[in-house]
Amino acid sequence: MRVLVRTFSELCITVGALIVLFVVYVLYWTGVRADSAMDGQLDELRDRWARDSVDDAPTTDGPPDEPLPYKDGKAFAVMYIPRFGFTWNKPVLQGTGTDVLKKGLGHYASTARLGQKGNFAVAGHRRTYGDPFKDVPELRPNDPVILTDGTTWFTYRVDRRPYRTLPDDVGVIDPVPRGSGFDGPGRYLTLTTCEPEWGHSHRLIVWARLDATQPVEAGKPAALRR
């Protein structure tokens, strides 16, 4: 009898310790891993851009290059949102799979390319894995969302306050997003993340429209300068 009680209490303590460890993993360790993965992606991207800009210089003959398709799971752009803090910058990767979202923000593969006509839609974690989109509810109309693909700066401006919708509302990433109030084709940006913060019953959506572009040679856009 005593052995039984003792074993049972040891099991309870073990389960309790397991749960505490799991909470530490979800709240803290995923963030540590994601931050280092995102830093790695940013470094890789900047290296690649530095190499490309050296390679590209002399090739002027022939028709202008058709842009290469984004490679699945690879970073192709960096996003800056001054509202989230001046040091906030995250890599944008192609695809929205679970593994991709551990390394940065994910571009919906079915949506438009960065800066092109249509809707450039990006998903990101609100909580865990570095909490990249934690402050999405703080976005307000006219807030800049700035992206660069290594050759051009794209400045999008948030159109309206974050919009709450259901998880199967695929229309929000349509070329002319449903529910956004945009009335015709244009160059749009959509951010999606989960809502509520720790749940998955809804999604939080933010729409923006392209406001300005400039080549990287022209320096950072005004919204990124202090």
Binding site: Y25, V26, T30
Partner: peptide, 16 residues
Amino acid sequence: FPWAEPLLPFNDVTVD
């Protein structure tokens, strides 16, 4: 834990 974590709802950030 990496196996168990996706069973929690924090990964559902997409609309499709």
